[in-house]
Amino acid sequence: MIPSDHFTKFYNEVFKFLETQGEEDLKSYWLAISKNQEKHTLELFKKKGLQGMYEYWDHIREEENCDLDLKLEDDKLELKMNVCPSLSKVLDNDAEPMKRYCDHCAGWIGPIIDKVGYHMVYDVIDRTKPQCVMRIFKNKEEATKAEKEAKLLMGWPGKKTDTN
């Protein structure tokens, strides 16, 4: 058994292989993970909207030992990751980290947020540091405005940015 504690280190090895195959292969994998994650998120997000997203990441905060702040407003959810356990584990690793490890997060979350009709802005800030900010908006114009302030804006399958 690869312990669940070491899943991210296994994930990192999978990403390194897929990167050798090309961008479309990475995206195709993120979509497979996204589909898997729909089991835990899709109905909740459809039914409860931003409140459901808050509940999901509040649960993840505890179960995955994340140091993160969640702020729920009427038309926006903001997740500020202060110390990401996933990248932290990949950096504390005898195997080499994949340089774009952070990209997978927007890669699986983005397609689900698109499906439920919200607008995500994912700012990784710096791929070498375990911190990021994700904002999910009800309103597309607000999201477009927020995209302009991002330091390192992530895209995902179906959503292109300058970084991919």
Partner: peptide, 9 residues
């Protein structure tokens, strides 16, 4: 749940 993601992978 990470084991579920391993299975998917």
């Amino acid at each position: 749940d990470f084991h579920g993601a391993t299975n998917t992978t």
